[in-house]
Amino acid sequence: MLDLGPVWLSIKVATLATAFDIVVGAPLALLLARRPWPGRPLLIGFLCLPLVLPPTVLGYALLLLLGRRSLLGGWIELVFGASLVFHWTGAAVASAVAAFPLFLIPARAAFLAVDPRLEDAARLLGRSNLSVLAAVTLPLAWRGLAAGVVLAFARAVGDFGCTLMVAGDIPGRTQTASLAIYDAVQQGDDARALGLSLVIALVSIAALAAAQGRDRLPEPHL
């Protein structure tokens, strides 16, 4: 029987990573879609680095940042009593960082596509900034945001190099499906590799289908 543990771990890791990307990325995308300021192009470039850096380089950078001897890593260990490194939450952080630009770019494009004059019209009709965001900006940017969520989730599920660097490949603890498939292939366990691959493919297709389901058919133009 196929051990689905790595798949569940992958879903858990990718879900947490995607949630992190949404919480951090959505406000950032909105900020970066609004009026320009001097450092903006530089910041956008920096945030998109995970897209162009080799995953191992990214993982190594995270290791330096979050490792026990680093300032941030030491603080996390002090507060939470555990380190992110070689822990499944470390895998989540790694895939969140790797997937971040894949959420940020479509999300920013979605906010850019919202006509700011519509937001002004809403304000003139008596709505507060928060209300304008909820009633106009987010509904109009919804499709782009959803596309970003699906892309980020798929990337997080598929992450290999960055996760391996930060969380290692500990079966039952940090071994996600991607790592487990690699192990299975190395050990010549073709049945396991194929089984896990199929399940992961199904998960990805289901995520895509769920995003499609949110799209309503355009109303007939009469």
């Binding site: 004059r117 002004d120 003139l124 709505r127 507060s128």
Partner: peptide
């Protein structure tokens, strides 16, 4: 602020 002005507006677009 805009939202307190109680001004109606119609637009070309």
């Amino acid at each position: 602020p805009l939202r307190r002005r109680r001004i109606g507006m119609i637009y070309q677009d």
